Amino acid sequence: MKTWIIGIIGLAGLAAIVGASYISPAALLAVAVIAAAAVGVGWPHFLGIPAKKTLAVLIGLPGVGAAVAATYLPGPGFLDWTPSFMAAGVMAVFVMQLIRGTGQAQRLESTLGSSAGVLLSCLGAGWIACSRFNGVREMLLVAAISAAIALLAGLIRWPDRVVAPLGIVGAGLAGPLAGLVFSDIAVLPAAVVGVVVGAVLMSFRRLVILRGESLSFAAALGMGLGPVSAVGSLAYFIDKLLIY
Rank of each mutant, 00 (worst) to 15 (best):
H45I: 05
G175K: 11
G101H: 14
S115V: 00
I185H: 08
S84P: 00
K52W: 07
G175Q: 09
A186P: 11
A150M: 08
Y22Q: 07
I243T: 10
S114E: 03
L180A: 14
L119N: 01
L201E: 09
A16P: 11
G126D: 03
L177N: 08
A37T: 15
D239L: 04
G179H: 06
G89A: 13
L123P: 03
W158V: 09
I238C: 00
M1C: 08
P165G: 07
V187W: 15
I128N: 03
G179M: 02
A230F: 07
M91G: 14
I209N: 11
G175L: 11
L173E: 02
V136Y: 03
V95T: 14
A125F: 02
G224R: 00
V142C: 01
F46V: 04
S131V: 04
A30E: 05
L47D: 05
D160V: 12
Y244V: 11
A191V: 13
L141S: 02
L166R: 02
R157V: 14
V39T: 12
G154Y: 07
L140S: 05
G212C: 13
I6Y: 01
M202Y: 13
F46Q: 08
K2F: 09
L14V: 10
A56G: 13
I6A: 07
A199S: 15
V68P: 01
A35E: 12
R132K: 10
A56L: 05
A38S: 15
G89K: 15
S121H: 02
T102V: 10
V57R: 04
T102W: 12
V95E: 13
P189V: 14
I128W: 02
A27D: 02
P189E: 13
V195M: 05
V195P: 04
V195K: 02
P44A: 15
V181A: 14
L201V: 11
G117S: 03
P159E: 14
L201G: 10
P176L: 04
A125H: 03
